[in-house]
Amino acid sequence: MSIALSAPDISRALKRISHEILEANTSSDQIVLLGIPTRGAHLALRIAANMSSLAGHTIPVGMLDITMHRDDLRMRPPRPIMPTSIPDSGIQGRDLVLIDDVLFSGRTIRAGLDALGEIGRPHTVQLAVLIDRGHRELPIRADFVGKNLPTSIAQSVKVHLNEVDGIDEVLIEES
């Protein structure tokens, strides 16, 4: 087990992502952030706070549960559904940024794109992740990446966040 990112690393990475999102989207008042529970939602809140102070106005943020759209439901025991909350602004015609902790096979994001279909039709959908560990199984890539972390398929990447785990760190575990 080794520490891939420490708390200051995570904080720096999120700040950089916040800047990049604002730079990539010319009209910041059109941006909506949606985090994927559990940890993606907390990352979204942190990024939104960063962006709001940079932009000088509140960036709308919510969370989007993708459980019902997963394609691997039957491969695991039933899992609880997490809450979904969409900002009052809605997502129709907006520049929407999905936020998750780790980008791996890409299946979670595919489910996220499907889940969005229920809610509305954004102008663009972008993706921000804290870690991209490779091993994609679908044609999906992230627009904003905190850190690229080359891993072997046998390893697992654990993201711990203060809000959930009491500590900020990213670990690589050999299985």
Partner: peptide, 15 residues
């Protein structure tokens, strides 16, 4: 229906 049918068998529960 979700709770009873969506998941797979418990023994398949390895990530």
């Amino acid at each position: 229906l979700y709770v009873l049918l969506a998941g797979g068998p418990l023994e398949a529960g390895v990530k």
